[in-house]
Amino acid sequence: MPESKPRRRPAKGPSETPSSKAQKPNAVWFLPLMVTLMLVGLFWIIVYYISNGAYPLPGVNNWNIGIGFAIALAGFMMTTRWRS
């Protein structure tokens, strides 16, 4: 009786995991948006301090600092997903 062929086992090395396949670079708009968010957040906080709380949103007082940090943080979080 003929002997059957053994099955090939898939390699379990780190180089052949599905998540490590060559990833496509980001869209063209990703990098400009990332940098813009970081700069807008910084600008928001600077405007708040220079205007003594009168701008950018006068009714929220010290929450302007939180808003500026949240905008900048969104930009910094995008850096974790950036691929060239």
Rank of each mutant, 00 (worst) to 15 (best):
M1Q: 12
M1H: 11
P2Q: 13
S4V: 11
K5S: 08
P6S: 12
P10A: 11
P10I: 10
P10M: 14
P10N: 08
A11E: 09
K12R: 12
G13C: 06
P14R: 12
S15M: 10
S15F: 05
T17W: 07
P18L: 05
P18C: 07
S19W: 13
S20F: 12
K21M: 06
K21F: 07
A22M: 12
A22G: 08
K24H: 15
N26P: 03
N26G: 02
N26C: 03
V28Y: 11
F30P: 00
P32M: 04
L33Q: 01
M34L: 09
V35H: 06
V35A: 09
V35C: 07
L37F: 13
M38F: 05
L39N: 13
V40H: 00
F43R: 02
W44Q: 01
W44G: 00
V47A: 11
Y49A: 10
I50F: 14
S51V: 05
S51K: 12
N52E: 14
G53I: 07
G53K: 05
A54W: 06
A54P: 02
Y55G: 04
P56R: 01
P58V: 10
G59I: 10
V60R: 05
N62L: 13
N64R: 00
I65D: 01
I67W: 01
G68H: 02
F69C: 07
F69D: 03
F69W: 08
A70C: 08
I71S: 01
A72V: 06
L73C: 10
A74T: 08
M77T: 06
M77P: 09
M77K: 14
M78F: 03
M78D: 00
W82M: 06
W82C: 03
S84K: 15
S84L: 13
